[in-house]
Amino acid sequence: MDVFLQVVVNGLLLGGLFAITSVGLTLIFGIVKVVNFAHGEFLMIGMYATFLISTKLGLHPYAAVAAVVPLLFVLGMLTQKLLIEPLMSARNHDIQIFATVGLSTALINLALLLFGADIATTPAYGLRTAIEIGPIRMLVGQIVMFGVATALVIGLHFFLQRTRSGRGIRAVAQNRAAAQLMGINVSRVYMITFGLGAACVGLAACLVAPLYPTSPGIGTYFVLTAFVVVVLGGLGSIGGAFLGAMIIGLIDSLSGFYIGSDMREVAVFGVFLLILILRPQGLFGGRLKLSHVS
């Protein structure tokens, strides 16, 4: 029983990781209607920035939040303004996909050029230490990540549902033409939303960096699961992404323990395929209205 409990807790903590890495992706998709294939590389950039701030300045990796989140916010805004916006009027939306895939490839190779293929290890400052609560062992860094992921999802929900700016953002997602007639500067909303989505993954990077080694390909490693989570939760649903992350975390953890650690990805992607076949709108798409923006 204790073992089962431990495996479940591991799954939920893993879910916290998946939630915090995917919430920005679903936000951008829900509002700007662009699938950002460079999302993982934004995470990678954030992780390298955290690594550099932590090693060169000798700061705690969590202190890097103050620099990394604004950096990613600006990077996201620039991506929207310089790359996506010029393509928005294009009749074929596949072009935007190619553009973000191209950005992803360019960023990976830029990282290879600057940092080489070796892994970079961010100082852990005790975040990789396990603490025990009863029979359950948890890493300090994982607990923080779970807490921040939960707070982020709740915070975004309230921002979108309860504030004037949030209402404006939802208006753009629901009816772009009408939003313009309400006096909303739509291209500015798109820029801010893309920036917010990137800032979320920047926050994730500061929390992930002390726990996982950083490398140019690390984004690809994380983003595959993020896509599964986002599709599972229903593209554009923030609450759905959170629940999707928990489900994938549990599947990953339970299948890894009870079936075999080499079967984890088979289980995760097997479930993904089943969802695509049975419920292509996602488990909560169109039903779960918790911050469903589109």
Binding site: R164, R167, R170, Q174, N175, A177, A178, M182
Partner: peptide, 15 residues
């Protein structure tokens, strides 16, 4: 051209 997933009140506030 209303905002379909918003309440009537929210639509008016958007005005």
């Amino acid at each position: 051209q209303l905002f379909p997933d918003m309440t009537v009140r929210e639509n008016l506030l958007m005005g």
